[in-house]
Simulated scan of single mutants.
Amino acid sequence: MVYFIFLLSAVIVVFAAVQLNRFGDVISRKSTLSGAVVGTFLIAGATSLPELTTSLTAVYIDNPDIAVGNMLGSNVFNLLIIAVVDMIYRKRKMFNAIDEKQHMPTAVAGILFTLIVVAALILPFDFSLFNIGIEMFILVGLYIAATRFMSQGEEEEMDEAAAAGKDYTLKTAVIGFIVAALIVFAAGSALSISGDQLAQQTGMSSSFVGSFLIAASTSLPELVTVLVAMKMSNYGMALGSILGSNLFNLQLLAVTDVFYQKGAILQSLSSTHLPVALLSTAMLFLTVFMVNRKPKENSFRYAVPSLIMIVIYFAASYQLF
């Protein structure tokens, strides 16, 4: 029964999150909330709401391993999405067509933020303020500063994506956004609770369930976004949606820490989260390499870095399992 609830919750989360993203885009374009920064926050928040809901529920049931593993695992799975899509469409040579100046700040910020998490997991001292790890204040502060340097091209990309689908009135979009958010909240909670029970019944570690099973489920809306972008041949939007979502997920770690009242949440985890954080860093470095390297004409040589990303992801999954 727990398997059925887990799978059903995952399907509902994916469906509702896709609608959430669609309605959120309409709101950002048709309301006074318009603007590159606010629009990016709204869309990133919409696609990341499943991760937030699932992690907050995990905190409520006192399972910080699922709470943090979901966030870190979602970031890794998002990068896997880009690698797999790049492999499948390797003849298009997606990274050869991407403007490196537009995406490098986001990618480098992702590496920096993830390394801060790695440092917090490695360093032995527990330095917190109001039961919130000091690393969370650093992450939020750097994120606010980084948004000032983000590319202005994201708004055009989002508008182009919206134009490809069905449009709605502002009132319809607001109602739809609220309904979809409530569905995501309910299904995300069920996903986290059933995942916790799944770990107990099968003997799998909570960190594995959070970092790979739940993370994969909550990252499927990003997969839909990437596939839509690839259909439009908008490779910048495909990569930008993943990198932007990853940055936002790391900010949601701070929100999770606020609700975890037993101290800094990163200091309450099992040791298995460090490999996931290091895996995310390695995959980000490979992404930066692909964005900056010289164009490759041979399809196989072009796809080698993506192949490496896929291999190390499944190797890490097997190791943690």
Rank of each mutant, 00 (worst) to 15 (best):
Y235V: 13
T32Y: 14
M204D: 11
L278D: 09
I134N: 00
A254G: 04
G240Y: 05
K296E: 05
L121F: 12
A58Q: 00
M232K: 08
Q201I: 14
F248R: 02
E157R: 08
L250W: 12
L129S: 15
K294H: 07
L307T: 03
F77R: 01
L121G: 13
D167A: 07
L252T: 06
L142P: 00
I88L: 09
V228R: 01
A109Q: 12
L274G: 13
Y89C: 10
V288A: 08
Y302G: 14
V2D: 05
S192N: 09
Q200S: 03
Y260Q: 11
V84L: 10
A180L: 14
A316W: 01
Y168C: 06
A199N: 02
G141K: 01
D25K: 00
V276Y: 10
I61K: 09
Q251K: 02
S9A: 11
F248N: 10
L227P: 10
I122E: 07
L223E: 10
Y89V: 04
F185D: 13
A216M: 09
I61E: 15
L279W: 10
G240H: 04
I88C: 12
S128M: 11
S194V: 02
F185K: 05
I138G: 11
I27L: 11
S74F: 08
D65K: 03
A119R: 04
V255Y: 00
A16M: 12
A83G: 15
V179L: 08
G24W: 05
V209K: 00
G236Q: 05
L42N: 07
I132H: 02
A181T: 13
F314Q: 02
M290W: 01
F113Q: 10
V224K: 01
N75V: 00
T54F: 06
G153Y: 05
S151H: 04
V311A: 13
A199K: 00
M290L: 06
Q152D: 06
S271T: 08
I132E: 05
P221L: 11
A120V: 12
A173N: 03
Q197K: 07
A161K: 04
S211I: 09
I183A: 14
L269E: 04
A119V: 14
N234P: 15
I144L: 12
V288Q: 03
A109E: 09
M136H: 13
A316Y: 03
G203L: 12
V85C: 07
A238V: 07
G39W: 04
L320S: 09
A164N: 07
F285W: 01
